[in-house]
Amino acid sequence: MNIYDIIFYIFALATVGSAFMVVTTRNIVHAAFYLLLTFFGVTGIYVLLTADFVAIVQLVVYVGGILILLIFGVMLTNKITNVQIKTGSLQLFPAAIGVGLFAGILVSALLNTEWKTAAGEAPKTTLNGLGFLLMNEYIIVFEVLGVLLLVALVGAASIARK
């Protein structure tokens, strides 16, 4: 058990534990802050998988963008001074049973599968390769995603101000 394993277990525990708190805590604002911890844990897992650029993007986009957006959503749709900031849950037990069974099947299927792994040499940096791929093979996807982001931005603004 070397340092890599210990760091992985710390990040995995932070990720799964805070994700559990996100879906079980009754306070929406607390859930948003636990979601922050989850995103940080996922970022650490990306770094352990030698995906440095994706990890930075995860931090910037998820923590800096999506989480702020979600907190704005909470603030705009709940009366802070009211008790409305609490949220309820529906069908807790059937959902827990179903999701638990699903998780058990998933994990046992994963453990019983012989994956053909061939871990290559860990690259020093992924930026160079990602840039080449984005500008050559995936250039059309890249452009289409740019247009999609613009459309989503304009659409979100026009939906929200109606």
Partner: peptide
């Protein structure tokens, strides 16, 4: 699975 649980129950 936790995400599914959140979507279903919240």
């Amino acid at each position: 699975c936790l995400g599914i649980f959140g979507v279903v129950t919240r």
